[in-house]
């Protein structure tokens, strides 16, 4: 096999791009106070933020699963008017500035919102804000997988006496499980890192809405070492998700 030599101009730009992505991460690792890391990550405020982050992100993931899988099914399998509008709406949080999402949530579910649930500035509000930005990742992954499944499986199941609900749980869902896992990992990672929508809709109350990213931002002002330590923790969690997804991709190929 012959390989063409890549042109120098492209190679240079690509190397610059790689450096641009890697350098900040290397800097973060370099500045991490590794010897005091155990101490910095076990302070009361860090543990509180970490626990809250896990609760909120897992809550957001659960919420995304409960409404996201049916949404994906609806988009993939049912023809109805306004489907393209719904799909656009589902995709919108991917590109919407999170702070705008927070404002919108405030207007919808805030104390004076369209549905005044008084969720703003509560832990439930933080969960809702995170679910808002995480949901598209899950829906798009599952919808893509559903579209890839031959509908003959549904038809066969029907001739074998299976109702729609049973077919969904015994045939369709197991077949999209890999995509569901990948979508869940992405959605969870997105929820864990959520900042803009959370601080706008849920505020920044230690113990109830101050998640890790918010804590990092505040701590950076007066305790840079602690902020770097928390950042390293978030980076590590992201890497874990990435590695888990890589092995999943290998499995499905």
């Amino acid at each position: 096999m012959t390989r063409t030599r890549p042109p120098l101009s492209l190679t240079t730009a690509a190397v610059a791009g790689a450096a641009f992505l890697l350098l900040p991460l290397v800097s973060l690792a370099d500045r991490t106070p590794w010897h005091s890391l155990p101490h910095l990550l076990t302070t009361t405020s860090a543990v509180t933020a970490l626990r809250l982050s896990l609760e909120c992100s897992l809550g957001a993931l659960a919420l995304s699963l409960v409404v996201g899988v049916p949404l994906a099914w609806l988009l993939a399998r049912v023809d109805f008017r306004g489907k393209s509008v719904l799909r656009a709406a589902v995709t919108l949080p991917l590109v919407l500035p999170p702070v705008v999402g927070g404002v919108a949530l405030l207007l919808a579910f805030g104390r004076h919102g369209v549905i005044p649930l008084s969720l703003a500035f509560t832990t439930w509000g933080a969960i809702l804000a995170e679910a808002f930005v995480a949901l598209p990742f899950l829906v798009l992954a599952v919808e893509g997988a559903l579209l890839g499944i031959d509908e003959r499986y549904d038809d066969v199941a029907a001739t074998l006496g299976s109702g729609t609900t049973r077919t969904f749980f015994r045939v369709t869902l197991p077949m999209v499980l890999p995509a569901l896992a990948a979508g869940s990992a992405l959605a969870w990672a997105r929820a864990l890192g959520e900042f803009g929508a959370t601080i706008t809709f849920a505020g920044n109350l230690p113990g109830s809405t101050q998640t890790l990213p918010l804590d990092v931002y505040l701590t950076l002002q007066n305790d840079p070492d602690a902020a770097v330590a928390l950042s390293t923790l978030l980076l590590a969690l992201s890497l874990v998700v990435l590695v888990a997804m890589r092995s999943r991709w290998r499995l499905t190929r």
């Binding site: 499986y153 066969v156 029907a158 001739t159 006496g161 077949m175």
Partner: peptide, 15 residues
């Protein structure tokens, strides 16, 4: 489900 009809599609379509 209630037609007493069995269907084997092309390639079988096993789950």
């Amino acid at each position: 489900a209630r037609r007493h009809v069995g269907w084997v599609p092309q390639d079988g379509a096993l789950f």
